[in-house]
């Protein structure tokens, strides 16, 4: 099991790096999907089954497909994808590395806290998450529907062809 953790972690990190460095947008999306599937594996490893399923459905099933659709819709390919200058790219890598180092340094100052509840492997099950969700977090859950509606309205608004300004 420990091996499984490191294996999944390696897949995630490598595919994440490829997302960043690969030039083709389609490839980016594919690598991101690989990364997310590995993450779903991590969720299963944490015995968070509900999350694992939702993650696969929402991220890989919906969001990434949306990305793919947009890329195809806009007909993006390698040739028209702009690249930053070499200096800027090196700077970006250095900054990312620094960020990593600083965050690692920050974790060194953490300390172990004793868990509030006795250990149980059951909490990630659908029944338990569902109870918490519809019991303690009912109001935020309902409000999130409002968020979705507004996001949908916003997306439609943006997607409409703008007649006031524009090139046509």
């Amino acid at each position: 099991m420990v091996f499984l953790f490191y294996f999944l972690s390696a897949i995630m990190v490598i595919s994440a790096l490829l997302v960043v460095f690969s030039k083709s947008p389609i490839n980016n999306v594919i690598y991101l999907i690989i990364c997310f599937i590995a993450m779903a594996g991590h969720y299963i490893l944490l015995n968070a089954q509900f999350l694992a399923v939702v993650h696969i459905i929402v991220y890989t099933g919906a969001i990434m497909v949306l990305f793919l659709f947009v890329i195809m819709l806009l007909n993006l390919n390698k040739a028209i994808i702009p690249q930053k200058s070499a200096a800027a790219r090196i700077l970006a890598v250095v900054t990312g590395g620094l960020f990593f180092l600083v965050l690692i340094a920050a974790t060194r100052q953490t300390f172990v806290i004793t868990p509030r509840y006795a250990f149980t492997s059951e909490i990630g099950l659908v029944a338990n998450v569902g109870k918490t969700l519809f019991h303690e977090f009912l109001l935020p859950f309902e409000i999130s529907s409002v968020l979705f509606i507004s996001a949908m309205v916003g997306a439609v608004m943006f997607g409409k062809r703008d007649h006031s300004v524009g090139d046509d």
Binding site: L98, F99, V102
Partner: peptide, 16 residues
């Protein structure tokens, strides 16, 4: 974006 990241970085370093 660079400026923002640099700011966050400095901030964390400062806290540390």
């Amino acid at each position: 974006l660079f400026a923002m990241v640099a700011g966050i970085l400095l901030f964390i370093i400062f806290i540390l």
